[in-house]
Amino acid sequence: MDRIYRRQRVIYDLTRRHYLLGRDRLIADLAPGSGTVLEVGCGTGRNLVAAARRHPAARFYGFDVSPAMLETATAALARAGLGGRVEIAQADATAVAAGALFGRPGFDRVFISYVLSMIPDWRAALERAAEALAPGGRLLVVDFGPQDGLPRAFGRGLFAWLALFHVHPIGDLPVALGDLAARHGLALDCRSLHRGYAVYAVLERPGA
């Protein structure tokens, strides 16, 4: 990840804002109150800054596998004056025990925004994210969809372009989310955004 994004991280947020559709909706839907929020694959810190500003009573946590991205995130949080409310660390989404990483029993909200399609073992990342949920907690996911409602040439072109950055949209993501929900006893609301451009899902663990 450092090899891919060491240079790109400088312009990452400027270029991605035009096509990572649904992530601001996800941030608005977090509604954590005064609870705890974990971002899986926090990258440059852009989402954490936006979420912490929108939900000022909550406490935020994030991790990323890339030290270079975490350098950028640390600087972004400092500029926003959020260092006291947001804690970040280096970890692998496929192997991390996020509660132990941050010394918490679980999180009220966990979110993954356009990260699964960058992780070869994305199923393991989903498992670890579900395990990090506290009772009554919600896991929110947004990522590229199958583009099935859009012109075929658009989808082929998008997938070819994304592959240059080692991003591979997951065609069976809704099915995998359904399996995850069944195995962990989670309620699932999964929908398509923008004619299949993105998949947006909310999984909720029953309360204690």
Rank of each mutant, 00 (worst) to 15 (best):
G62F: 10
T72G: 08
G62Q: 12
L77P: 02
D64Y: 10
M69N: 12
E71V: 11
R53H: 11
D64V: 04
G84M: 07
A51I: 04
L77M: 01
F60C: 06
R53L: 13
P56F: 09
L77Q: 04
A76R: 13
G84Y: 04
T72K: 15
A68L: 15
G62V: 06
M69I: 10
P56G: 12
A80G: 00
F60R: 11
A68D: 15
A51F: 05
A80T: 03
P67I: 13
L77A: 02
A57F: 05
A78D: 14
T72F: 15
G84K: 13
L82I: 02
G81T: 00
F63V: 04
R59H: 08
A73R: 06
A51Q: 00
D64I: 05
A57W: 09
D64C: 11
T74Q: 15
A80N: 03
D64G: 11
R54K: 14
E71M: 07
G84D: 01
R79C: 05
Y61S: 01
G81P: 00
H55P: 06
A51V: 04
R59S: 12
Y61D: 05
A51W: 01
L70A: 08
R59I: 06
Y61W: 07
T74I: 06
A68H: 14
R54T: 07
S66M: 14
R53K: 10
M69V: 06
G83D: 06
P56N: 07
T72R: 15
F60I: 12
A75T: 13
P56A: 09
A76Y: 03
G83C: 05
A51N: 04
A68S: 15
R54A: 12
A78L: 03
G83Q: 03
R59P: 07
P67Y: 10
Y61L: 04
A58W: 05
G62E: 07
A57N: 09
F63G: 09
A52C: 04
R53W: 12
A57H: 13
F60M: 08
H55F: 10
H55D: 08
L70Y: 14
G81K: 05
A58S: 09
R54S: 09
A68E: 15
A76V: 00
R79G: 03
A57I: 06
A75L: 08
A58L: 04
A78Y: 08
E71L: 13
F60Y: 08
A52V: 03
A78F: 04
F63A: 04
A57K: 14
L82F: 01
G84S: 12
Y61K: 03
A68C: 07
M69G: 07
T74N: 12
R59G: 06
